[in-house]
C-alpha cells in the first residue's frame, strides 16, 4: 500500500515565513512537498475560520507561520495570531478535535534551514498520525 501522504495547509506571513520559504527554495534546500503554502500579509490576519475550514476541507494539519515575537513587520500582528491560535487549540483540545494538528511557528526571513526542518518535522508527525478525522465533518 502506498504511504499515506498528508495534506498540510500553511498560512505564512509575507515578510518572515514566506521569505524563509523563498530562501529555502533559492538555496536549493529540500523538504517534502506536502505543504501548501499560502502567502498572507501577516499572521495576524489569519482568521480561525480559515484553519477550521482547512480541516473540514481535508487538511491533515494546519501551520501558521509568522515573524518572531517582537520582530513583526506589522509591530504586533504575530501576537494577535498567537492569542487566536492558542484559543483555537484550547477549543480543539476541549472538544477532542486534535489540537496537535495545529501548529504555530515563528520562522524569520533568514531561517531557510529552520523552515525546512519544521516543514519536514510537521510532515513526518502528520504522516504518523494519519488522516485527520475532521475531514468532511461538516456536521460538527
Amino acid at each position: 500500500m502506498d504511504k499515506f501522504e498528508p495534506k498540510i495547509l500553511g498560512f505564512f506571513c509575507n515578510w518572515c515565513t514566506s521569505s524563509a520559504a523563498d530562501l529555502a527554495g533559492t538555496s536549493r534546500l529540500h523538504y517534502p512537498p506536502n505543504v501548501r503554502p499560502i502567502r498572507v500579509w501577516c499572521s495576524g490576519t489569519v482568521d480561525t475560520s480559515y484553519v477550521i475550514r482547512g480541516f473540514l476541507e481535508d487538511a491533515d494539519a494546519v501551520v501558521v507561520g509568522g515573524c518572531h515575537p517582537a520582530d513583526c513587520h506589522y509591530i504586533n500582528g504575530n501576537y494577535k495570531a498567537r492569542r487566536r491560535i492558542k484559543l483555537l487549540k484550547t477549543i480543539f483540545e476541549t472538544l477532542g478535535l486534535g489540537e496537535d494538528r495545529i501548529y504555530l511557528k515563528w520562522i524569520s526571513a533568514s531561517e531557510g534551514v529552520k523552515f525546512v526542518r519544521e516543514m519536514t518535522k510537521i510532515t513526518e508527525e502528520t504522516r504518523a498520525k494519519g488522516k485527520s478525522p475532521l475531514a468532511g465533518r461538516w456536521d460538527i
Binding site: 520559504a21 527554495g25 536549493r28 529540500h30 523538504y31 517534502p32 512537498p33
Partner: peptide, 26 residues
C-alpha cells in the same frame, strides 16, 4: 504563483507527480 521557489526548487528528487500536484495547487 511561486512555482519555482516554493514548488520546484525545494522538492528536487521527489516523485514528479507529487511536485506537479504541488505546482498545480500553487
Amino acid at each position: 504563483a511561486e512555482v519555482r521557489d516554493m514548488g520546484v526548487f525545494p522538492h528536487a528528487g521527489e516523485p514528479a507527480e507529487a511536485v506537479v500536484e504541488k505546482v498545480i495547487d500553487l
